[in-house]
Design a protein around this nucleic acid. Structure first.
Length: 95
DNA sequence: CAATTGACGGGTG
DNA sequence: GCACCCGCCAATT
């Protein structure tokens, strides 16, 4: 590999770690992940990293919006339902 | 280095 | 519920 390494930032590593802490059957919002990553308010930063993560060993399907809506749609809903998450009208059930 | 874009969040009308 | 604005952070151009 003559290519240079991705050189992930500390923030990105913290985001990956936070997402890995999310247990199956549950969901977390970008703001929650950002807060766990040590950058509260960086919800957009989390989205930016996740969007690029593609291929990483991450349960990205557990990451949803703050209002319980799914950012990616069909694929998201199918995976979450497979994890045991209840989805109503395209939104994750918030109890 | 500046400007733009993007899997966001909250507030206001 | 929908439309618009501001703030916030990271990656890309």
């Amino acid at each position: 590999m003559t290519s240079d390494p991705p050189h992930l930032t500390e923030f990105a590593r913290s985001v990956y770690a936070a997402i890995r802490t999310v247990p199956p059957g549950t969901c977390a919002s970008y703001g929650e992940i950002a807060q766990e990553a040590g950058r509260p308010g960086a919800a957009r930063g989390v989205g930016s990293i996740l969007a690029q993560s593609g291929g990483a060993d991450l349960p990205w399907w557990r990451i949803i919006r703050a209002d319980g809506s799914l950012p990616k749609g069909a694929d998201q809903e199918g995976r979450l339902r497979a994890e045991g998450v209840t989805i109503i009208n395209g939104r994750v059930r918030m109890t």
